[in-house]
Structures are given as structure tokens and as C-alpha cells.
Design a protein around this nucleic acid. Sequence first.
DNA 1: CAATTAGGTAAGGGTAATGGACACCA
DNA 2: GTGGTGTCCATTACCCTTACCTAATT
Length: 688
Amino acid sequence: MSTEEEDSDTVTVETVNSVTLTRDTDGNLIFHCPRHEADELDSEDSTDPPHKRLCLSSEDDQSIDDSAPCISVVALPLSENDQSFEVTMTATTEVADDEISEGTVTQIQILQNEQLDEISSLGNEEVSAVSQAWFTTKEDKDSLTNKGHKWKQGMWSKEEIDILMNNIERYLKARGIKDATEIIFEMSKDERKDFYRTIAWGLNRPLFAVYRRVLRMYDDRNHVGKYTPEEIEKLKELRIKHGNDWATIGAALGRSASSVKDRCRLMKDTCNTGKWTEEEEKRLAEVVHELTSTEPGDTVTQGVSWAAVAERVGTRSEKQCRSKWLNYLNWKQSGGTEWTKEDEINLILRVAELDVADENDINWDLLAEGWSSVRSPQWLRSKWWTIKRQIANHKDVSFPASAEAPAAPVDSETLTLNSGTLQAFEILPSFHLQPTGTPGTYLLQTSSSQGLPLTLAASPTVTLTAAAPASPEQIIVHALSPEHLLNTSDNVTVQCHTPRVIIQTVATEDLSSSLSQAELSVDGDMQSSDFPDALEADTFPDEIHQPKMTLVPSYNDAHVSKFSDQNSTELMNSVMVRTEEEISDSDLKQEGSPSDLTSAYVTEDLESPTIVEQVDQTTIDDETILIVPSPHGFIQASDVIDAESVLPLTTLTDPILQHQVESHIIGSSLGSPVSEDSKDVEDLVNCH
DNA sequence: CAATTAGGTAAGGGTAATGGACACCA
DNA sequence: GTGGTGTCCATTACCCTTACCTAATT
């Protein structure tokens, strides 16, 4: 929460100067707004106590000193009734104890409830109108939607879970409780009053959703795993004995109530398993059409009561019926066509074109409409997940990133970088080029749960263009085709204007020039074992410099440049050796000399002509990425780049080229050259 | 005493991941 | 014939929403 935003969006109702400050072992500053003071504040509207929220602001916003420690503040209401708050402040720089005092800290603002809506996008500590109601009915939600509110539905993201866990942790700390299960499972309603409301802070979910989530998270009878045959037997007995008393059955089995309930749904006595007979399929189709008042050949993907269908089918469970229908039978009945690789590419392109920020916002019904090889919207969604899973660490990749890569035309070999709103982030040692599932399309995986999508394909030249006039933050780099790479060396530098993120990748000549199709079977039969070392990221020596690519905001028109740096030879050797081993394993290493290479350095400013610099290289392994302050919007040939004016940034290998080589080898997209999880890569190899 | 709050249960639609069957191929 | 591999399909643990219920509190 920035103070500027606060100023513009909030009104100071009352200022409180008397607070109690404590500091915990983590250096967090915790202070309390005592009840009696808050009560006094409340006096202006005693008949209808407004919801209040504590905010903090610097006493003098105009004179914020850059060198001053930045303090982030999280305020949690201890209870709505007594109007007291718990505030946790975290200093991002070391704060001397004497800097924190009642006099210097802050103003405390109590905000009226109606102001809360106005600041709904400021941060995690926000109050959401959605999360403050215990249960949000569909009508409530519709009403909120009409007022412009949005809330999260569907699977919880990692970020949401982090917020939730942090909130719980703070709640526990404030009360000196060690274990959240004490509150959740042992305390009475009264004792844990406001627990859920408090920990829902910052989560744009109905309280009830938070409640369910917390119960699941802390119930150790959840996530127990597969049911053993013995458990199934016992479950059957307990079911007969206790009926639908899932809590009792669960307690007897050591499973959660929802778990046993779910398991029972799968085991109807009359259920067949395995392949469906024609008779069963026929019956399923008849029942579905009958219950939905549709005709054979109609597409039916929603509004089906699967419990009723299963009842009528007789030999299959509701899940089986649903799965069979949505993944096969409906498609077969309505004359669907086979799913092809082209469809897969099409899917990625279409998802990218949707330009939605959240995966949950994708309208799969719309996407599937009129697509004959799509078996159902649900099936299409699972297809998308299958494609996503081919990306190692896909869970950490934000949706826009994973969907962005294919935004560029995949048949024209492009590299797309979308800086988004990132100001700066690093691609840590194990940065990856992950295939997105579309041949020639990769995702540059970063360390901060963000990804830069890259698409490499078949344009014979390297140029940079804006992806679209309307999206200057997105740049397409037309990279060399694999064929071209066999003969040429190129570096690709990408500069995004908004918000001035510079990305550079450096080609490794020896690889590209030494490989040929003939030598590297291009028939797609390459197995993961052909890259024994490259596929095991953990073989990287931790103690030495690891390849690290950093994206930095290009303040003051600083530019990334590249030149030979003898001092980094050892470093880069340690980085590059893996690649070279990979090549030597194929008896290819000697084909290219690393010392006689030239690299083309291509930079294009989005708003300026393409600048091409030829940079002689004496040692291909010695590449360092540097930031070069430049008076121009781009590096001109006349710009003098000397070692002193250059800020060494970091070194990096060339994942792109390496990847191009690999993708060339297998004739398709392949896993990252440096994966943290070799299995992921093997899976990727298998996928193609 | 009605309305509200806080919490709870059950049903059922859905997702994500896994594993088996099978076809294909060297 | 055999073993490896890829794909399709079925299964299942787990997730989430919705509808409805209950008891305590206001």
C-alpha cells in the first residue's frame, strides 16, 4: 500500500497518536490501537457503527526520504466489535529501534466503511466486500457483480494461499497460539470469534470459501491418499451402519467426512469398471438426451444431472457417466473429428488471443464452440492443462505468461517477450526455456513465479517488432531459423519500452555452427538419455557462478550490451561445459571452433530503426551481460562501450540457441536444457 | 420474537493426476 | 516374440459451489 494511493483514496477520520508498539523476533513491529481510543473514535456515529479500517501514513508524505527505511504495514482488525486493530509493520531496511517511536510512526486513519470499496485494489490487506459476508449467495454475487465487484472462484492460487497462511500466522502470533488447529478444531465458536473474518483479510473470496479452505488445509484426515482395499471394505460396512453420516464414518476411518463421502460416490454396488460396452454407451446416450430434452447428435455439455443419469444408466457412477459423455461419447455422436497437432497449436493461439488475465476467466464453452475436434469444453480445458503440464514448474508460471507465448504466429519463428508490469526480476541459475506444448514455442521461466514467453520458429532473420501497436510492452523477436543458425551466429537483444525491461540472450556459436542435421538425427527419435547431463540441473556446481540472466529496468536509457570478458572465462566454462559435453557426446564438439566466431548483435528500439552491431568475439564462452548507460534510446555503432562505463550485470548461457539446437534435434519443442527436474524434461521429450 | 450471525452438513459438479490397456514400431 | 514408447481412456483423490439447516445472538 503506497502512501500516495492512500492519500488520494482515503479520508482521515481521526488521528490516533497513542499506540503500543512491540517488536517480534522477526523484526516485525506490532502495535495495538487500544480499545478505549477506538471507542472514542467511534463516537461520531454510534447508532450505526461503521466498519472501520486502520491505515497508516507517513506524517509528511511529501518529504519521503529515499534513504529512509521502507515500512510495509499490514493492519488486521482484532475484532469488529471493539474496533481495535493489530498492525504489523515490516521494515525492508534495517530500522534502528529509536527510529520507531510513537511520535514518528504514523498517523492512524480509521476509514469509514464506504471508503473501503474505493480502495479495493491496493493490496493484500484490503477489505473485500465479498469476503466480509459469511456466505455469499448467488444473488448476492450477482448484485455485487452489478456494482462492479469481482471475486475469485475456482482453485486457489499460490498467492492466495500465501496470503491466507500469512494471515493465519499473524493471527496466531497476536494471540500467542502455536497451532492453528487449536483454533479450528478445538476452540468453541465464541473463543475463535472473528477468526475466519480476520484471516480472510485481503482475500477476494466469500468467508465461507475461506472457511472450507482452512478446514481442509488443517484437517490431517484430509490428503491421506489412496484408499486401501481394507479401507474400502470397512467403508462399505460403515456406510450400511451409518448411512450418510459422513462425519461418523470419517471419524471411524480416520478420513475426513468429505473424503469418505466422495469415496462412496465412486462405489455403487452395481458399478461396472473398465471399458464401456456398446449397450452401456447406448443407454448413456439415451438417458442424457432424454433428461436434457435433446436429440442424438446435439452437443450436450451442461445442465446434466449426472446423479440422475447414473441412476438411469444403472451400471456406472455419476463420475463415470460424466467422464464418458464429455470426453468421448457426445463428441462421437455428434460426428467429431480427431484432435491433431494443428488443433493443439490452434488452442494455444486461441487462448493467447483471448487476452484474459486469469485462467478462470476463459470461457471454454465459447472456445470450444464449432470446433469439431473438441470433445467438450471440459475436455478442451483438460487439453489445455495437459499442454501446460509439459512446462516444468508450470504451477509456478502465471497464467498470462504461459498463455502469452503462443501469441506470436507459430509458423514464423518468433520470440515473444512480454514484460508485463515487471520492473525487475531475475532469472535464477536454473532458468529454463520451457516448451509450452506448441512446437517452437517456449516459456522463459523466471525465479519469481513469472515467466517470459519465447517463441522460436522459422524466420531467417533477426528482427524485433512490436507484437501489436496497442501493446508496446510486448515485443516479438524474429529469431534465426534453425537452418540459419547452423551457419551463423547471432545474439538477440530485446528491449521493452514499458517498463523498460532489457533482456538479452547470447548465442553460443560453437553449438550452432557445429551441428548439422545429418549429425544429429532429426527424426524425432532423440531420447532424453541423449542429453544425459543437460537434463539434470542439479549437476550444476552450486558453489560456482551459475548462469544467471537478469532483467533490469533500463533507467536513464541504460542499455544492455555484450562483450568478451576474459575474467569470466572460468565462470562461463563451468556453465558451458554441460552444453559442450552434450555436443561431445555426439562427437560433434570438434566440428566448431569456439574461437573463430562472430556474433551479430542486433538491437531494435521499438520506436527507432534497427541497429545492428557486429561484435567480434574471441572466446565464445566469455560472455557477460552488461548494462551500458547510453544517451540514446539504443546503442549506436558510435557509442563507445568501454569496460569502465559498463556495469557488469551477470553472465548467462544461451538458452535460446541451445534450445534451438535441441528443438532442431528432435524436430519439435523439447524441455529446457537446464531443468531442475530431469523427470519433467523426460516427460517433455516423451511428449514430443 | 423476528432477524441476523456464525457455523455446519450434504449433494453434486468439477479438476488434476495417475495408471492401465493397447497399438505401434524397432 | 519382445520390449520400449506413445496415446487413449478410465479411475480417483481432492476441490469447490450451492442449497439448506441449526443454534446462538442481537
